[in-house]
């Protein structure tokens, strides 16, 4: 599904990613862990085409297409979704209007008819239930005045609406209390199908208790320095990252 080869990227002239190689197949869940500043969020930003980041070398293909040549909206239309670490507040733009525009743009891209108002509202209601998002929030402006937990639940709600093929969760567990973590974790699990894949960027085991990874990577200093099965999560939780740094020899 996704193939990253020798990817280098920088922000404001500073090189952050230094040769990432990663292959994600259909149905797989990959966890990406690693100490602060190792490049995890940069990787997710580059995959969705954030203009603040510059790719200096390497290729990314998604279902055979050259992803880096595509505009962010087209990457979205192809089925790539990012749950933002810091969801953006958009005063004056209602959730309903925002979501409806997004969904209809996707349908347009797929050559389908836009949803009727009633069909859309029915879909909103159905998907809202997955993350227990209050109707009041759905009627407000995008993320405006939402608590940290509400914002993250809203991200998963949007994911449910857009039904992406590849979801990237960038520290979706940060700032969540135990209940919100459960709701988000269970929500993502409900949305998971054998056809969809997921990249979970996190510092902790706790979200991975809900979303079981098939493969775990450790990103350090802009490179993937270790790849293993789910047992690596437990080991990192116990031992931290220093032993990996030692292995890498820095």
């Amino acid at each position: 599904m996704l193939e990253i080869k020798d990817l280098y990227a920088s922000v404001n002239g500073k090189e952050i990613l230094k040769g990432i190689n990663l292959t994600i197949r259909k149905g797989e869940v990959h966890a990406i862990m690693g100490p602060n500043g190792s490049g995890k969020s940069t990787l997710s930003a580059v995959l969705v085409g954030n203009p603040a980041y510059e790719v200096t070398k390497g290729t990314v293909t998604f279902e055979g297409k050259d992803l880096l040549a595509l505009k962010p909206e087209d990457r979205s239309h192809l089925g790539i979704f990012l749950s933002f670490q810091y969801p953006v507040e958009i005063p004056g733009v209602s959730m309903v209007n925002f979501m409806r525009t997004a969904l209809n743009e996707k349908l347009k891209y797929e050559g389908k008819e836009p949803l009727s108002a009633s069909a859309f509202l029915r879909l909103m209601r159905e998907k809202r239930a997955i993350v227990e998002l209050d109707n009041k929030l759905a009627n407000r402006a995008v993320n405006e005045g939402f608590s940290g937990g509400e914002k993250k639940r809203n991200e998963i709600f949007q994911m449910a609406m857009l039904e992406p093929k590849l979801s990237i969760l960038d520290e979706t567990d940060s700032g969540l209390d135990i209940d919100a973590l459960r709701i988000v974790g269970e929500g993502v699990t409900k949305l998971k199908t054998p056809e969809t894949s997921c990249i979970v960027i996190t510092h902790y085991q706790r979200l991975l208790d809900y979303i079981k990874p098939d493969i775990v990577h450790v990103l350090y200093n802009g490179r993937i320095v270790k790849t293993a099965g789910p047992e690596l999560v437990m080991e990192l939780e116990k031992r931290g990252y220093d032993w990996i740094k030692d292995e890498v020899g820095e």
Binding site: P72, S76, V88, I90, F98, T101, E105, L162
Partner: peptide, 8 residues
């Protein structure tokens, strides 16, 4: 960018 990521 947030809106673009959602396909707008």
């Amino acid at each position: 960018f947030y809106m673009q990521q959602r396909g707008i």
